[in-house]
């Protein structure tokens, strides 16, 4: 899929996700709110960022060497959005909901612009921070005897916790598989050159 098609798909997905009924359906349960809505919005924005014109990408890249500032944007946005109060506030106040959705779009776009420039070491550093954070949050949600969000049931919270921990494992496995594949490819190329 070329960049333009990706951007189109991303935009289409964002429009679809913004439809109030779909938004409400996702926010009806705590685990869908965090583990369906968050990744879908981020993913759509990731695709959309493919359509950023080359000159703009170059200007941004000057402020984003090795994708460092971009990964900070993504990491910090996810860290802030994982504060339990944000979920409640987003349901109560439309302006917080809007800010949350814009933040998710920013996180997705920043990730797209920074992931490749970051290279393996910085990617590892990024995931090495994000995944344990997600794991700890997941563990807290599972183990807390109290409801952390007034708007959601306790069972829902435990389910979210379990899924967060599962997501950590899945992301880690995918990334390691990709690395293994990447390195194998590189070595094959080197061997064939000799």
């Amino acid at each position: 899929m070329n960049r333009q098609m990706q951007a189109g798909a991303g935009l289409g997905l964002l429009v679809l996700l913004a439809i109030p009924d779909i938004r409400h359906a996702m926010e009806e349960s705590m685990w869908r709110h965090m583990l369906v809505q968050f990744p879908l919005w981020t993913g759509a924005a990731f695709l959309l960022a493919g359509g950023i014109p080359a000159y703009l990408r170059k200007t941004i890249a000057r402020w984003n060497m090795y994708g460092i500032s971009g990964l900070f944007v993504t990491g910090i946005i996810f860290a802030v959005l994982m504060i339990p109060r944000v979920l409640d506030q987003a349901l109560l106040h439309p302006e917080i909901e809007l800010a949350k959705l814009i933040a998710l779009v920013l996180a997705g776009m920043a990730l797209r612009l920074s992931w490749r420039p970051a290279g393996l070491i910085l990617q590892f550093f990024f995931l090495g921070n994000m995944l344990p954070m997600m794991g700890v949050v997941g563990w807290l949600y599972t183990e807390s005897p109290q409801r952390l969000c007034n708007a959601y049931l306790l069972d829902d919270q435990i389910q979210l916790g379990n899924w967060l921990i599962a997501a950590v494992a899945i992301i880690a496995v995918i990334w390691l598989t990709w690395i293994a594949w990447f390195i194998t490819c590189q070595e094959t190329r080197q061997i064939s050159r000799h």
């Binding site: 500032s69 900070f72 944007v73 910090i76 860290a79 802030v80 339990p84 109060r85 007034n150």
Partner: peptide
């Protein structure tokens, strides 16, 4: 530029988190 941008991002994130948590006193709506 990258360093400046990163520091700005961290400061904005810190500010947002501090507002949401009332200066890191609370984490939940309750």
């Amino acid at each position: 530029r990258t360093i400046v941008a990163s520091i700005l991002v961290v400061l904005i994130g810190w500010g947002a988190a501090s507002r949401i948590t009332c200066d890191f006193q609370i984490w939940t709506e309750e």
